[in-house]
Simulated scan of single mutants.
Amino acid sequence: MTTPRLVATDLDGTLVRSDGSVSDYTREVLLELDRRDVPVVFVTGRPLRWAAEVFEHVGSHGLAIVSNGALVWDVARERVDLERPIEPALGIEVCRAIRAAVPGTSYAVEGLDGIGLEPGYLERFPMPEGSRRAPVEELLDRPALKLLARHEELDAEEFWDLAEVATEGRLVITWSSTTALLEISAPDVTKASTLSLLCERLGISADEVVAFGDMPNDLPMLTWAGTSYAMADAHRTVTEIADHVAPGHDEDGVARVLAGVFGL
């Protein structure tokens, strides 16, 4: 294995422990890679407001890919580097198609300014104070970084399959939750496609990237990267396609692999 020039890692279930922390050991490994001028790019499904909780560990290169590739955020300058949103008309069209095929679907809309939720959308985590509540047609009054579709009766994979058929490839659908929560992105927007754009700008090829992940929304990135690791407790579809398996996220698996790869 050629020594990578860039590390791409998912956060939840991958780099971040179950209690939401980044261990001291992992922090030291990331700092050492930064000293060696090896960018560690966080590539997460988290919206900006949640990803910001771990931005202190991004390092001096200062870029993070959030919302499954919809946004590249310049951490150092606290501003948008690249935005790849869903256009409102297309978003509304697809939301209506999914709801017609799967009655009981409810939606939330993520944007740079926060999240809006339909009245029937049952959130699992505290939402920002003042978040809008309205039908999705009203929430989509501007381009959106990501749509969230939730169903309270189906399991995640069944919901995904039905929504994929209804969407007919017009938007990208994936999931990273243990509940029936789908994450919907603009056409061709995945963790992989945005990471590819970023690496092209940096003059880094896919073969020079090592990537880590644990859930189906990581599949495009792990397939694209020259070297890929599934976490020990990853979803079966991730373990099946990854080149290697890393120790679990509560065992600092990403950091331990990187320490070996870079001879730390």
Rank of each mutant, 00 (worst) to 15 (best):
V209T: 04
V209E: 02
A211P: 11
A211M: 10
F212H: 08
F212E: 03
F212C: 08
F212I: 11
G213V: 11
G213S: 07
G213K: 04
G213E: 02
G213N: 04
D214H: 14
M215P: 06
M215F: 12
P216D: 02
N217V: 01
N217L: 03
D218C: 09
D218H: 10
L219N: 00
L219W: 02
L219E: 04
P220F: 02
P220L: 03
M221W: 08
M221V: 14
M221S: 13
L222K: 03
L222R: 04
T223C: 10
T223S: 15
T223F: 13
T223I: 11
W224F: 01
W224V: 02
W224L: 03
W224Q: 04
W224R: 09
A225G: 11
A225C: 13
A225M: 14
A225I: 05
G226K: 03
G226E: 06
T227R: 14
T227A: 13
T227G: 07
T227E: 15
S228F: 03
S228W: 02
S228H: 03
Y229S: 01
Y229H: 02
A230K: 10
M231Q: 13
M231N: 05
A232P: 03
A232D: 05
D233I: 06
D233H: 15
D233K: 09
A234Y: 07
A234C: 14
A234R: 05
A234K: 05
H235T: 00
H235S: 01
H235W: 03
R236S: 14
R236L: 13
T237G: 09
T237I: 08
T237A: 13
T237D: 15
V238E: 01
V238F: 05
V238T: 02
V238W: 00
T239I: 14
T239P: 06
I241S: 11
I241F: 10
A242V: 12
A242Q: 06
A242K: 03
A242M: 14
H244N: 14
V245S: 06
V245G: 09
V245Y: 11
A246I: 00
P247M: 11
G248S: 15
H249Y: 08
H249L: 02
H249K: 02
H249R: 04
H249A: 02
D250E: 09
E251I: 07
E251Q: 10
D252P: 08
D252Q: 10
D252H: 10
G253R: 03
G253A: 06
G253H: 03
G253W: 01
V254G: 06
V254M: 11
A255S: 00
A255T: 02
R256N: 13
R256D: 13
R256Q: 12
R256P: 15
R256F: 14
V257I: 12
V257D: 02
L258S: 13
L258Q: 07
A259E: 15
